Amino acid sequence: MEITVNQKNYPVSESCSIEQLFAEVLQIPVQGIAVAINQTIISKTEWPERLLRDGDRLTIIKATQGG
Rank of each mutant, 00 (worst) to 15 (best):
I3R: 02
S43A: 15
S17R: 08
P11S: 15
T45Y: 03
R50W: 04
V30S: 12
I3Y: 07
I18L: 04
I3A: 09
K44N: 08
T40A: 10
M1V: 15
P11A: 14
N6C: 05
Q20C: 02
S13A: 15
I37G: 02
T59N: 04
E14G: 12
A34T: 01
W47G: 00
I41W: 02
S43F: 11
M1D: 13
G66A: 08
G66K: 03
C16G: 01
T59M: 07
E24T: 07
M1C: 13
T45G: 04
G66Y: 08
K62Q: 12
I61N: 04
I28T: 15
K8V: 15
L21F: 03
P48C: 05
S15A: 13
I61T: 09
V25R: 09
T40S: 10
I42R: 11
E14T: 14
Q65T: 10
I60C: 03
A63V: 05
E2V: 10
Q39C: 09
V30C: 05
V35C: 00
E49R: 11
S13V: 03
E24M: 01
S17G: 07
Q65D: 07
I3L: 11
C16M: 15
R50V: 10
N38S: 09
I28F: 07
F22S: 01
L58P: 01
N6Q: 05
A23R: 11
I41N: 00
V5M: 04
N9M: 14
C16Q: 06
N38L: 06
R53S: 14
W47C: 00
K8D: 14
